[in-house]
């Protein structure tokens, strides 16, 4: 907020609890007082994305429950042999840890962003981008392995054909989200390093003045990508 909020009766006696909910939704012009609009927009976008991924996962549940052909055992399909011993889901658990780790570095970037610590925010954003890129790289390895084994969106030599369709659709969509996240992390990291956010330099596309708010909003997106992975990991790989 650049201007101090105009003194009105609403701000003098700020309602609490459920009353604040009703006051917000019945208010004039803006529903979510004091919340930056860009943050609200990101949340609403993520709400839409929740429905996209939710529908994917429910569709996956539906085809997995309805097939008469046995479903391949994910713990065996995604096992890797390390040192002569077969470890189930070896690559997948590393990918999970990498994404969880990147969540922490993103949180640190947001935290340093609040303190307007340019150097550290940049480093943490860059680290998050690197971790995200390595996640996508490992996913590419996993895809290559499965494609070599003959799995296609329409075919699966190991059992139910729906396995291939669900796997490529769900992990592909998630991987696309990670990739887009990495691109935006790099863009934001460059903006931070250049001092765009300190100098309120207008963005080349929207012309909005630079602000550390964008680090927090990008963080929402990045954490959401990890949130989706938690569900994919549990219901697709571990189930």
């Amino acid at each position: 907020m650049t201007q101090p909020a105009p003194t009105s009766t609403a701000s003098v006696t700020a309602p609490e609890g459920l009353e604040s909910l009703i006051a917000d939704f019945s208010s004039d012009q803006r529903a979510f007082k004091n919340v930056p609009w860009a943050k609200v927009m990101m949340w609403i976008f993520l709400l839409g994305d929740t429905f996209v991924f939710g529908s994917f996962l429910i569709g996956y549940m539906n085809v997995r429950m309805s097939t008469q052909v046995p479903w391949p055992h994910p713990a065996e399909v995604f096992a890797l042999t390390v040192g002569g011993k077969s470890i189930p889901l070896f690559l997948v658990i590393i990918m999970t840890f990498i994404l969880t780790f990147s969540c922490g570095t993103m949180s640190l970037a947001i935290n340093y962003g609040f303190r307007k610590d340019r150097q550290k925010t940049f480093l943490m954003l860059l680290l998050t981008a690197l971790l995200g890129a390595s996640f996508v790289g490992m996913q590419a390895i996993e895809w290559t392995k499965l494609i070599h084994e003959g799995v296609r969106p329409w075919a699966n030599p190991m059992g139910a054909v729906q396995f291939g369709a669900s796997f490529f659709m769900i992990t592909g969509f998630h991987g696309t989200h990670v990739t887009i996240g990495v691109i935006f992390l790099i863009i934001t990291a460059i903006k931070v390093l250049r001092g765009d956010l300190d100098n309120m330099r207008p963005g080349f596309l929207t012309g909005r003045k630079g602000s550390y708010e964008i680090v927090e909003i990008l963080g929402l997106y990045w954490h959401f990508v990890d949130l989706v992975w938690v569900f994919i990991f549990a219901v697709f790989y571990l189930w």
Partner: peptide, 26 residues
């Protein structure tokens, strides 16, 4: 804000309906 919480967290509950329909249909 409470209003934002409700606006974002309540709509995904609709997916539970889809989950139920999906299970019955399967």
């Amino acid at each position: 804000r409470l209003a934002l919480m409700y606006a974002i967290l309540v709509p995904p509950l609709l997916l539970l309906t889809l989950l139920g329909i999906g299970a019955v249909e399967a």
